[in-house]
Design a protein around this nucleic acid. Structure first.
Length: 290
DNA sequence: CGAGTGCCCTGACAGC
DNA sequence: TGCTGTCAGGGCACTC
């Protein structure tokens, strides 16, 4: 959306949607200019500059857009389900239409750029492909919680940008069962490193393939993201694991369907031993990942 | 306060 | 043909 940078917003209003927090404070954007088009995790982040220009950068209002599952921005008016419309000043494509069939998306202004209204954004971890995402920092984040590793990944706190599909794919690559307690993953530096690398690899490959478009979701042009063909675990319930041939299973976890290989990603055995250190040692034998 | 559950919303699809 | 039920999922309100 390079065409948005530098444009002044003449009008910002809700269309075909009831008022609510998902479309909060849109009128604040009117008269302001889009300073840049950035991104934080799955949120688009567009700082605004007021007409007088006299406001500190860190106090700017910010236009925040989350596409949800079905959100799409276009210059052409959609046939239906338009939720927000922007009118920009002179220039190409003066009207921006936000279409969002299922209304999982958001399109709002954060006064002063304060993300308090968006808790996930406020607590969001580093960008996965940036230098800020380090194995050490990732490990520390995993250590802080004992929820299932997949649940934690979906929270966006250890790292930004992972959704259900890529979480499943990264866990498959790292040979980690989605229900493994995060703390337990943190104990194994090699596993943390494997997961850290897997997250980067999966997202990097997905971006290069222009994303994943599920069966019933298409772009307006009917395009399908090419990463769909690269999925190893997600959506492959009942298919052979590409690595070992075992049958991929599906289970609901954290309210999301999770796909994994029961052989490569063995079920974590019971809760970590409690009560004093690991005296007696030795009993953790079990069998390795292989 | 951390963890777990369920809601929002609509369209596609299966089954009867 | 037409109806009903189920599923999909990012983020968050709510409950325990």
């Amino acid at each position: 959306m390079p065409w948005l940078t530098g444009r002044r917003i003449l009008e910002a209003r809700r269309v075909e949607a009831p008022p609510g927090p998902k479309y909060a404070d849109l009128p604040l954007a009117e008269g302001q200019r889009i300073a840049e088009v950035g991104r934080r995790g799955k949120f688009l982040w567009l700082p605004l500059t007021p007409p007088d220009g006299a406001r500190a950068d860190d106090a700017r209002d910010v236009l925040v857009i989350h596409l949800g599952m079905t959100g799409i921005l276009s210059a052409d008016a959609p046939p239906a389900h338009e939720r927000v419309r922007l009118v920009l000043d002179d220039g190409p494509d003066p009207v921006v239409h936000f279409r969002d069939v299922r209304r999982f998306g958001r399109f709002l202004v954060l006064p002063g750029g304060d993300p308090a209204r968006l808790p996930t954004l406020a607590a969001m971890g580093p960008e996965p492909l940036s230098d800020a995402f380090t194995p050490a920092g990732f490990r520390a984040a995993l250590r802080r919680s004992d929820v299932a590793i997949k649940t934690l990944l979906l929270s966006q706190r250890p790292v930004a940008g992972l959704g259900n599909i890529y979480a499943d794919e990264a866990l498959w690559r790292a040979r980690l069962h989605p229900a493994t307690p995060a703390k337990r993953v943190a104990r194994d530096g090699a596993r943390v490193a494997a997961l850290h690398g897997a997250i980067r690899d999966v997202l990097d490959a997905a971006i290069r393939a222009q994303g994943t478009t599920l069966n019933d979701y298409r772009t307006v042009n009917g395009e399908v993201g090419a990463y769909l063909a690269h999925l190893d675990a997600y959506g492959h319930e009942g298919d052979p694991c590409p690595r070992c041939g075992s049958t991929i299973e599906r289970r609901v976890l954290a309210g999301r369907s999770s796909h994994f290989c029961p052989h490569c990603q063995p079920t974590p055995r019971r809760a970590p031993r409690r009560g004093g250190g690991r005296r007696g040692g030795r009993r953790r034998a079990g069998r390795g990942a292989g």
